[in-house]
Design a protein around this nucleic acid. Structure first.
Lengths: 178, 178
DNA sequence: TATTGTTATACTCTATAACTATA
DNA sequence: TATAGTTATAGAGTATAACAATA
């Protein structure tokens, strides 16, 4: 990182400055139907959220995507959890999960051992090093989320949480019927 | 695509089946602090939204990310718009924008011509082929969004839109002061 | 034969830097 | 010298398919 960016609780991260053209007007652009498309706002806000998240988490080398932090926290909360169960929650397939776990093993955060009862399976545990950063990761992740959504009032945040949980329940962790 | 997936308006897309482990229980997993973290739900819902979006849009070969559809629609609505202005809205840097535009030029959807007044700049326009798919793209994008967020009531969707627009205004298109 | 996990490939996105052409 | 756009590279994510070990 070339420039150290001071913590700015008011405006966590924006579009990078360099992206703004200097010789063209950016303000008078029509968004076509995107203007009123929920999916558009959802995606764009999410992109910015993820970038901010990566910046904040880079200090514990768990940046780049949601998977690493979720993995660390879920292994912490569920010692012995298996890669395929993790994959289900982290929304990856097993092969992507393998690569992610490989990185975390290389980083010395996680160890695995072969399950006694299911010798195909692996049980995942945090190493001492892994355990030592859990608290910091929890705190960074919470702070980042609070700061990012801090532009909303408390009741608005609660509303948003309810709406997102509803979407989550119907699109992510549906118990499929067939 | 191996299996043709029938259009299911009730449940657009879920975690792929194969991801669900067969010999391990997925239900009793603790999410640690993720359970109450807005950023977690935001990101996860967004991932599922994007996958569904890609599936739906693959029929017009504009799948893989939000950029192509946004680009098509914004060039349609703003003929002569420049790459750097587009990049600002699509949240990419100029080099990523170049590659995206290259694909769309190769696909015959967009042409560019050098600006008269600013010979460094390019002006973007839709080709006839580009214009011919705009309506379909609008309709697919709208339908996908409506279906995905259709699990929410009308007033909930309105709430969500307001909340997302507020986040968008403060994190994405802030006019920076310094 | 089915499942768990691994490896490999191809494509996309991100971030960065170096480059050109214009201003 | 600064800006618009291009090209190239390295790292990570996604999606597949083929594979080994175990059930």
């Amino acid at each position: 990182m070339a420039k150290a960016r001071a913590v700015r609780s008011k405006a966590p991260v924006q579009v990078r400055k360099e992206q703004q053209p200097k010789t063209a007007d950016v303000s008078a652009v029509k968004l076509d139907i995107l203007e009123n498309l929920l999916s558009y706002y959802m995606r764009v806000v999410s992109v910015v959220l993820n970038r901010d998240y990566d910046h904040v988490l880079s200090s514990v080398s768990l940046a780049h995507g949601t998977g690493k932090v979720s993995t660390l926290l879920m292994v912490a909360a569920n010692p012995g959890i298996r890669p395929s169960v993790l994959a289900h929650y982290v929304l990856r397939d097993r092969s992507a999960m393998t690569r992610l776990l490989q990185q975390m093993k290389t980083a010395g955060l996680i160890i695995e051992q072969i399950s006694d009862r299911e010798r195909r399976a692996r049980e995942l545990y945090l190493t001492a090093k892994g355990k030592s950063i859990v608290d910091k990761v929890r705190s960074l992740a919470s702070q980042q989320s609070d700061a990012f959504f801090g532009v909303l009032s408390g009741s608005e945040q609660k509303q948003l949480m309810e709406l997102l949980k509803k979407l989550y329940a119907s699109h992510v962790h549906v118990e499929d019927e067939d």
